[in-house]
Every structure is written in structure tokens, then in C-alpha cells.
Amino acid sequence: MLNDFFPNVRMEDMITATNETLYMTLISVAGTFILGILLGLLLYLSGPGGLWQNKVVNTITASVVNIFRAIPFIILILLLFPFTDFLVGTIRGPNAALPALIIGGAPFYARLVEIALKEVEKGVVEAAKAMGAKSSTIIFKVLLPESMPALISGITVTAIALIGYTAVAGAIGSGGLGDFAYFYGFQRSNFDVVFICTVLIIIIVFIFQFIGDYASRKLDKR
């Protein structure tokens, strides 16, 4: 029956494309989470009133973050071709999309991290200082745990943006559902394929949102 409505949809192709999309999303989310938290911490700690207040570092970090956030993703991929080629050894396939995905996602997430850290009560940091805590203790035992629900909802928003980016990356042949929908679906006028790819992407987005909401709620003891 499925074949009557969607004559051009082949199960194994769909599974491969979905797997590629999931692969790109998961790895890039992990990379973005780490790089974004590092950048966000740097923004927060070097900012006014921060633990390592430093105007130069803050200005440089903020500029880098703003520049990379300003570049449209499709252009970022093109700009990164030489870097990707050097790093991955190819500019095609899911792995080739990862540098652009992480470099595109991390600055966005860094700003969300900065906002999350700013929400941590100053008094709690002060209490830790009064107990004689080191900076590393304050970062890992106060700032990050206390902002964890916001960090998780931030990475959820970012992950969904990244799922969108993986589809854009399809334009340069990254593989995944976006690639498949464009080359196999749109260009060959197989609109049933475009439709199924869309449904699959929506399902993936819903799953990520659900997991993110659940984790954020579970962690929030306020």
C-alpha cells in the first residue's frame, strides 16, 4: 500500500539517509556543546564583574562569536572548504559537514551559555568564594551545575537548528535527509520522496525537543 502512495520511496535509502542525518546531528551537537560551553564560559568569565574580568579577551571572543553567527550557514560551508579538506580529507559526505556544523552551531550556543551563566545568582558564587573555593571549583561545582537546566534547554534549541543545518549541508552533498530530498527527490521530481524526508526530519526534531524538555525538567530542582 505504501508503494501506491509513494512509488519512489525505497525503505533502505530512507534508513540510510536518516542514519546519516542522525549521525551528523549527534556528533555536531556533542561538538557544539563542548565548544559552545568553552566559548560561553570565556565570554562570561572575562565579562564585566566576571571571575577573570579582561576587556581584551572579552572583546576578541565576542567579536569571533558575532562574526561566525553573522555568516549564513550555506556560505560558511563554502568558506570552510579548504579547512574541511585539510581536516577530514574530503569535502563530501557526512564527516565533511561536521566542521561547518560545529563552527556554525557553537557561537550560537555560546551566547545561550553566556545568558544561562548570567542567571546564576551572584550570591551563590560569592558564598563559594567565601568558603575558599578555587576558580575551577566555582566553574565546575557552582556555575555549570547551577545553570544546567538552561544549558540543556539551550542545547535543545541549538540541536534543532543543527538538524536544519544538516539539511542545508545536503546542498553540497553531505548525505542525509536534506541531501536525499534535494538530489533524489526535488531534482528528479520525486515529490513523494521530498514529503517523506520532511516527515522524518519533523519526527527527529520532535524527539530531540522531547528529550531536551524532559532532561531540563528533571534537572531543575528550583
Binding site: 545568582e121 550570591g123 551563590v124 558564598a127 551545575p145 547551577e146 530542582k221 528550583r222
Partner: peptide
């Protein structure tokens, strides 16, 4: 402290 400043996550 006046506002206790406890870690809510602990």
C-alpha cells in the same frame, strides 16, 4: 547571608 545563597542543585 541574608538570602542564604544555597546551591539549589544540591
Amino acid at each position: 547571608f541574608q538570602h542564604f545563597n544555597l546551591l539549589w542543585s544540591r
